[in-house]
Amino acid sequence: MVSAAATAGLAAVDPPAPVSVGDDVPHSRPGRSLIRLQGVHKAYSNGTVALRDVDLEIGQHEFVSLLGPSGCGKSTVLRLIAGLGDLSAGQIEWPLSRVDAGGSPDRDLGFVFQEPTLMPWATVFDNVFLPLRLAGKSRRAMRDQVEEALAMVHLEGFANAYPRELSGGMKMRVSIARALVTRPKVLLMDEPFAALDEITRFKLNNDLLRLWQDNSFTVIFVTHSVYESVYLSQRIVVMAARPGRVIADARIGAAYPRDDSFRTSDAYNRYCREISESLHRAMEPPA
């Protein structure tokens, strides 16, 4: 199950160099960036610099984690990619996407927040249907597509339940179904499982990996957990705070599918240790 690629691994770099996507990773396609961040700078009106000079390329069907302490701007990166908020400097390109008349790219993404962020007055079906409804689609025409999204997260039979009737893990599943219902190219996830208990989190980790393998979307996953990022990702972008910046870009070479035997393997431990070390460097004050 665990590939010998444990020897590949880590290229901790400071300042970050452009990432070259290796051939050892089955899902990536070299040279075909889906999203390209160049010199991205974000300062708030109170003077706080949230991000300084972030360069990042994300390929098609990659699984990338943004890892770092709180305040390192990893969620800000995610929101900027989603088009929420303006850049202070730099640019975010979508080389493979169409550009509309107003000059903004067709982003084609789904977003999962840290909270399930469901509409409490609407049923599970209506919550998942929301992105399609906002796009002007009719409920009747989209019924199958919504039900398919619910089936993907194992929530068949819950279409008419209200969010309050569901447990935390189930609400998060609804949130994931809503993000996937439009069949997006990119799934952005902002610490989606941080509030869940460990057993539920492991289960959702596995479900997420299965969905990613079965479909062709890219995942950009924000987390502060070394263990979660190593378990899930092909690639981990380590960030540091004050100001928010990228300090390392590491590859996790272990093959997919990954399961609980990977979680307990030596290779997994070694990756975790290496990532932890670069994270500790991130916590130290800049020289």
Binding site: E156, F158, G168, G169, M170, I199
Partner: peptide, 14 residues
Amino acid sequence: TAPAAVQPDDLDSA
């Protein structure tokens, strides 16, 4: 709603 596919480990705090 008498769900068809109950996942016991997921239902505890509903």
